[in-house]
C-alpha cells in the first residue's frame, strides 16, 4: 500500500485506499518510533535521513523491502559510527553525533545538489 502512494494521491485514492486514515496512521507510527528511539539513544542526527535515501538507491522503491532494510541499515550505520567515534581519536572518544554528521552531511548536500540539478 505504501508503494501505491508512489503513484500519487489521486491514483491511490482511485484504487480505494483510505488515504486520510492511512496518512494519519503512518504519521503517528513514524512519530512514535522516532520518539522512542530518541528517548533511548538521545539526538543523533542524519541516521534517519541518510539511510533510507542510500538504500533506495541500492534496492529500489519497493517499501516491503525498503522499510525493514532501512531499520537494519540504520542500526548498522549507527554501530559503524559508534565504532569510529570510539577509535578515531583514541584514547579520547568523539560524540557519535559528530561522526554521523560527518558521514551524513556531505551525503545530504549531494542529495540537495542532485535534486536541484533535476529541477
Amino acid at each position: 500500500m505504501l508503494n501505491a502512494l508512489g503513484l500519487g494521491e489521486e491514483t491511490a485514492k482511485s484504487l480505494g485506499l483510505p488515504l486520510e486514515a492511512l496518512k494519519l496512521l503512518l504519521l503517528g507510527a513514524a512519530s512514535l518510533l522516532t520518539a522512542s528511539a530518541v528517548a533511548q539513544a538521545g539526538i543523533i542526527g542524519f541516521v534517519g535521513l541518510v539511510t533510507p535515501h542510500l538504500l533506495r538507491r541500492l534496492l529500489g522503491e519497493d517499501y516491503r523491502l525498503l522499510l525493514p532494510a532501512s531499520a537494519l541499515g540504520g542500526g548498522a550505520l549507527l554501530a559503524l559510527a559508534d565504532l569510529l567515534a570510539r577509535t578515531l581519536a583514541r584514547p579520547a572518544e568523539l560524540p557519535v553525533g559528530v561522526v554521523t554528521t560527518l558521514l551524513g552531511g556531505p551525503f545530504f548536500l549531494y542529495l540537495m545538489w542532485r535534486r536541484r540539478g533535476r529541477a
Binding site: 501505491a4 508512489g6 503513484l7 500519487g8 489521486e10 491514483t11 484504487l15 522503491e61 519497493d62
Partner: peptide
Amino acid sequence: LAYLPQNGPYPEGLLVEEVVRLGRLP
C-alpha cells in the same frame, strides 16, 4: 472504475510488474 491521471507521479524505482500489481489493490 480505473482512473489514469495525466502526468501523475510514478515510482521510478519499482519494477514494472510491481507497478502493475498495484492495480489489484481494490
